[in-house]
């Protein structure tokens, strides 16, 4: 698993990259009550706002971590947004991306580096 400074995790699954948010991020957000997912077959650039998460208190954005195509989204989150709090690194993945160049993943933090970041 790789991690971004924006508290997202990236997991390689075949030729796709699965994206979600870390346990730390989910805890900071609080109870998630709504998730707005992107359309599939959308081309995105790193830094684009692709997902909106609403907790009881506030709205936050999830940014695309890399350039690529959104090929699948987790529709379960529309009905069960609380999954983001219950299982952020498992059942509550947000979307899957197809990348032109998987080697870009090497630039992200590994688990030890991420744990250092959040102290």
């Amino acid at each position: 698993m790789k991690y971004t400074e924006d508290h997202e995790w990236l997991r390689v699954e075949g030729d796709l990259v699965v994206v979600g948010i870390t346990e730390h991020a989910a805890t900071q957000l609080g109870d998630v009550v709504f998730v707005e997912l992107p359309e599939v077959e959308t081309m995105v650039a790193a830094g684009d706002e692709v997902v909106v998460i609403e907790s009881v208190k506030a709205a936050s954005d999830i940014l695309a971590p890399v350039d690529g195509e959104i090929v699948e989204v987790n529709d379960k989150l529309a009905l069960k947004p609380g999954l983001v709090n219950d299982d952020p690194t498992g059942a509550a993945w947000f979307f899957k991306m197809k990348l032109d160049d998987m080697s870009v993943l090497d630039t992200f933090m590994d688990e030890d580096e991420y744990l250092d970041l959040i102290g």
């Binding site: 924006d6 508290h7 997202e8 948010i21 991020a25 900071q28 957000l29 506030a58 936050s60 954005d61 999830i62 940014l63």
Partner: peptide, 8 residues
């Protein structure tokens, strides 16, 4: 994730 800077 944005807006997560307020934990301290």
């Amino acid at each position: 994730m944005t807006d997560l800077a307020q934990n301290g």
